[in-house]
Design a protein around this nucleic acid. Structure first.
Lengths: 340, 340
DNA sequence: CTGAAAGCGCTAACAG
DNA sequence: CTGTTAGCGCTTTCAG
C-alpha cells in the first residue's frame, strides 16, 4: 500500500532526468540506446505504471472515446461495441462505455460525467437527446458521432440506418408476398425511438396499399422468447385471421415461430413472420426467421473510424453522414410461394 | 471550437474566487446561499463542465473502477456488468470497461492502460492471469476483485462460483437419473478456464462412479445454436448409444435440444440434456433445458459492493472470498422418470 | 464563510 | 541527444 511510483522514482533509479525518462516511455524524440536501456530496465524492475491523469493534464490530450449506449442486455449494443473496439484496438484511443437504460435524464448524467474527462470524441446511440445533452454535445468541441439511427437532425456526424425506411421496406416485402392482415408485436418502450420509427415506417408502407395493422401488442420485461410465444398465442386467439406477424425484435419473433410450429401451423403458408436485427441466433432455429440486418458491427466500425480521423489535430472535421442499407433476409418465413 | 471553460471563467463570471466556486460545485464546505446561487447560475449559463483530470490529479482521487472481462458477445458478461452498474449507480464511483478476448497478453495491456488512470479499484474476470498482470494487481495498492471463478488462489478479493464444483454436481445429478453414457460438447477455448474446470469437475464426478465421458467435441465461431445442432447430430451419428449430452453453454445446448426434438427423439427419456449458465432465453424453448445458474448478476453486485466498501479511505480491506452456490435447474431435460 | 498559496505528476517549449 | 523551466486546472491547506 505504498505510494504509487512516479517518474521521479524512475529518474532516481536510472540516473536519467525525468524529462528523458518521459521521452523513453513515450517513444518520443531521440534518445541514445544506452540511456533508453537504462530507463526501460529501471521502469520495469520498479514496476512503474505511468500516471495518465497527470500526462493528460500536461499534454491537454486525452486518449479516451466516450461511448454511450442505452443497454447492454440487448445483444445489439455489445456488437456495436465490438465493432468500435476492433477499430480502436490498434490506435492510441481507448473506448469508455456508459449505459443509459433508455432514460434521457440518465443519458444526460452519463454524458456529463464522460465529458468531464475531456475525451477525444463521443459516440452516442440515437439522435434524440435532451436539450441539455444536445447543448453539451454541441459545445464539447470534440468530434461526436450519433449512431444507429439516421432519421433526424444530427448534432455532428451520424452513422446508422433509417429505421423508418426499414419499416417501409418490410411493408413492401410483406405486401409483395400477398399478406394482408398484419399483426405487430414489440417492446413497451416509449423511449425506444428506433423501434417506434420502424413501426411508423411499416404503418406508412402498408397504408399506401390501403392496409392497416389489425392487431398490436407490447410487452416489457421477462424472457423475450417466452413473451413471443405468449403474445403470439394471445394475438391469434383474439384474431385468428391474421396472416402476418411483424415483431420488433428477433427474440420475440423466434418465440412466436416456435409457438406456431408447435401448433402445427403452416409457416409461411398460413402465417408469415418477420423480426428485426439479424441476430446470429436465428441460424439454428427449426425454420429461419425473416429479418433485417441492423448492420451493428459496421456501424461501430464506421463510427470509430470517424472519431479516429477527426481527432487528428490537423483534421478537417467535415460532418459525415453514413447511411447503411439494412439487407432484408427472407429466411423461411416470408416467402409464400416457393421459388422453383 | 473554443477553448474549454475552466473554473477561472466561472469565477470571473460570478465574481467569486475559484476556490469558492470549486466548493459550490462539489458541495464541499459551507458556502452562503447567495454566493452559491451566483456561482450555480454562472456555471449553468456558461455550460461549464468540470475537468476531472485536473480534479483527480489535485485530489489524488479517481472515481473510476476498472472492469475487465474477456468478451461482450457472451451475454454472460453484459449481465455481470449490469450488476456492477446497478450497485455503482448511486455511488460516486464509475465503472470503466475493458475487453480481453480471452487473450492473456491483451488482458495485460488492458490492465496496464486502466491502471495508468489510477482507478479506485479493479474488477477482473477469472483468477488466472499472466505473471506481469498478477504483479500489477498486487502492487496497484487498490482493492481488486477477481470474479466468476473461485477455484484457485486469488490476488485479493474474489467473488464467484466454483466451476469444478458445478461440474461435480452436474455429474451427480446425471448419475442419479440413471444416465450412463455421456457425451460432452463445448467451445474450443483452451483459455476459457471456467469451462475447463466444469469439464474437469464433470469428469471427476463421473469417474467416482466408474464412468468415463464417451464422446467429446469442441467448436469455435459461428452461431452457437446452429453449432449445437450440427455437433449433436454428428456426435449421435458417431455414437448412437449416448444417453446424455452435457453442453458447456446453454446456446449450443438449446441447438442440440431443437435438433433432437426435430428428430422425434424422446427427451429426456432416451437422451437427457443439460447446459450451463441459466440464460433467460431457455424459457420459451419447446422444452426447458436443464442448466445451472451462474449467478452473474449477483456476482457483479457483490464485486461492486466490495470495491465500494474498500475504497472508503478508512476501510479495513480484509480480503473477502464470496463463493456463491449455483442452483441446478432440472427443466424438462434431466429427469428420467416424471415425478408424480 | 471566503481567499491565497502551493503543488498533484507529467509534458511542451526551449536551451544547451 | 539531454536537461531546465513553467505550467496544465483543479484541490488541499492554511489564513483570515
Amino acid at each position: 500500500m505504498h505510494r504509487p511510483l512516479t517518474l521521479r522514482d524512475v529518474s532516481a533509479a536510472s540516473g536519467v532526468s525525468e524529462m528523458t525518462v518521459s521521452r523513453v516511455l513515450r517513444n518520443r524524440g531521440d534518445v541514445s540506446d544506452s540511456t533508453r536501456e537504462k530507463v526501460l530496465e529501471a521502469a520495469k524492475s520498479l514496476g512503474y505504471v505511468p500516471n495518465q491523469i497527470a500526462g493528460s493534464l500536461a499534454s491537454q490530450q486525452v486518449n479516451l472515446v466516450a461511448v454511450i449506449v442505452p443497454s447492454l442486455s440487448n445483444m445489439v449494443f455489445p456488437e456495436v461495441l465490438t465493432g468500435i473496439n476492433q477499430v480502436l484496438e490498434e490506435s492510441p484511443l481507448q473506448p469508455v462505455f456508459g449505459v443509459t437504460d433508455y432514460l434521457p435524464e440518465k443519458e444526460e448524467r452519463v454524458l456529463y460525467e464522460m465529458l468531464s474527462w475531456r475525451p477525444s470524441g463521443v459516440i452516442i446511440a440515437g439522435i434524440e437527446h435532451s436539450e441539455a445533452a444536445n447543448a453539451m454535445l454541441t459545445n464539447a468541441g470534440i468530434p461526436v458521432v450519433e449512431i444507429m439511427d439516421t432519421d433526424g437532425r444530427p448534432v455532428d456526424n451520424v452513422v446508422g440506418i433509417s429505421h423508418r425506411q426499414a419499416g417501409l421496406e418490410m411493408a413492401r416485402a410483406i405486401l409483395k408476398q400477398g399478406y394482408q392482415r398484419i399483426g405487430f408485436m414489440g417492446t413497451k418502450m416509449p423511449l425506444d425511438h428506433r423501434a417506434r420509427k420502424r413501426f411508423e415506417g411499416l404503418t406508412e408502407g402498408l397504408a399506401k396499399a390501403g392496409i392497416e395493422i389489425e392487431e398490436r401488442d407490447f410487452y416489457s420485461g421477462g424472457s423475450a422468447l417466452a413473451k413471443g410465444r405468449e403474445m403470439t398465442q394471445a394475438m391469434l386467439e383474439r384474431n385468428p385471421d391474421l396472416d402476418f406477424l411483424y415483431y420488433s425484435n428477433d427474440m420475440i419473433g423466434a418465440g412466436g415461430l416456435l409457438y406456431l410450429l408447435d401448433q402445427g401451423i403452416d409457416v409461411p403458408g398460413q402465417i408469415g413472420l418477420a423480426g428485426f436485427n439479424g441476430v446470429e441466433l436465428l441460424q439454428g432455429l427449426p425454420r429461419e426467421l425473416a429479418t433485417m440486418d441492423a448492420c451493428r458491427l459496421e456501424i461501430g466500425q464506421a463510427a470509430a473510424k470517424i472519431i479516429l480521423d477527426q481527432s487528428q489535430p490537423d483534421a478537417e472535421r467535415i460532418p459525415q453522414k453514413v447511411v447503411l442499407a439494412p439487407k432484408i433476409s427472407y429466411g423461411d418465413t416470408l416467402r409464400r410461394k416457393r421459388v422453383v
